[in-house]
Design a binder for these strands. Sequence first.
DNA 1: CTCTCACATCACCACTCGCTGATACCAGCG
DNA 2: CGCTGGTATCAGCGAGTGGTGATGTGAGAG
Lengths: 102, 102
Amino acid sequence: MLTSVDTDVIRVLGDPLRLKIVTLLARETLCTTHLVEETGAKQTNLSNHMKVLREAGIVETEPCGRFTYYKLRPEVLAGLSEQFAELAASARTAAENKRACP
Amino acid sequence: MLTSVDTDVIRVLGDPLRLKIVTLLARETLCTTHLVEETGAKQTNLSNHMKVLREAGIVETEPCGRFTYYKLRPEVLAGLSEQFAELAASARTAAENKRACP
DNA sequence: CTCTCACATCACCACTCGCTGATACCAGCG
DNA sequence: CGCTGGTATCAGCGAGTGGTGATGTGAGAG
């Protein structure tokens, strides 16, 4: 089926700041301090968003001394990409499948 | 670049009902009445969501007598898919790019 | 013409969500 | 130890958002 896209991950990525975090993490593994510098957001706010990303399974944490490093889980993004690709492919063939007026 | 993902489309697709609508429209072109039947939502609510989808450029309208047919724009979904694929690909190579602790 | 039906818009309520400040926790350093 | 710095959690506030009922509009049927 092509309905298996769960909205939780999409909703989480729908926030501009979180998407920026994901974009940054797509380049390199970073800890909260780096993210605070890069995004300009408050530490509390960042930590909050990181919790959301963690609970959505989008990022993984890796403690390193006092620091906490975050890295992306590519499978999640790849899965999203594939599901959107399926929808797009299905949509291309569905243009002429017009259900009759009731 | 891989930062060009605009969150508007993602946010719009982050709603369960809207994603269901998109999934249905990926199969066939439907009008509001059909969508009301399929989703069980109120007509007003549906119309509201369709407006959001329309303004996000995800669907197109096609009047047919008294009925209004909606169909997906596959390019938008394909673009999303590609951008997520880029992020995933970048994330795979970024695992060992760990910035030094400050 | 008038009535009906499909659809859109408006106004309102309730709720959720993001942001913030205060605070607690934990690891290393002296 | 006690202190410092990095992180997580908590409570609260304000703004944005989804759902709903009432109402408007426009095209076909009779």
